[in-house]
Amino acid sequence: MTLYVQAILNGILVGGVYGLVAIGLSLIFGVMKIINFAHGEMLVLAMYLSFFLFTLLGIDPYMSLFVCAVAAFILGYGVQRFLVNRILHVPEEMQVLLMLGVALVLQNATLVAWGPNFRAAQTRYSLSTVWLGPLVMDVPRLVAFVLALALALLLYLFLRRTELGTTIRAAADNRDGAVLIGLDVRRIYAFSFGLGAACVGAAGSIILPFLPMSPYSALSFTLTSFIVVILGGMGSFLGVLVGGLFVGVAENLGAVVLTSSSKYIFSYALLILVMVLRPQGIFRGRSG
């Protein structure tokens, strides 16, 4: 029994980060209707940046979080500004193929630069734990959960309370309307993609202390965020957060029941199931 409760607890902790990563994907989709196939690659890239800031300069991942977020923002801004903004009107398959191209370039650039081996950052607190009765919590996971939720809340407030956030939501709701009232939609788009990427950038730093990385981890990160977003409903903020928790718990429970290798089979099956049953997300009413 403890085993299952423990798995659920671990799932919730890691699920918070899934939520943050997926919010980035959901923001990009919600505003531009672009599916960022390079999402996992951007996450891995941010992890490498954070890793090298830590090993070469001794900067703690929780400190370099902001550097990584800014770097990812610039990358995302550039992708939208120079690539996606040029193909806003082509069929969505072609847009996905473009993003697949971006993903291939990013993943293999990482591979060429740093090789295929897994790397892990050994921070002082990487292995420290807190006991909660019979349950044990890894400190880095706990911190990651709190930070991820805090950043998500920050983003939420930004979108709701600031003028720039309001323009982003306006452009997402009604592109033509936004153009009509004189908003520079293309710049808003680039900014939104940057913001979505910044979520992944921050998440990369946050998960570094407890998760080893390799260029090949990217695809599973991308797919996990797809599962979360599709489960939570594209563009729904709260839904995506809860979706993240749900997927985190499901994966960790799955790992207890199944062998860890078949855990991924379980994830893909979950993705198919979610796409088939609730393409509009669990928090939306049944429509269409």
Partner: peptide
């Protein structure tokens, strides 16, 4: 992996 970078660039260019 270099040939995959080329693939990626090609995909982008073609689209």
């Amino acid at each position: 992996g270099t040939h995959l970078i080329i693939y990626g660039l090609l995909l982008i260019a073609v689209v």
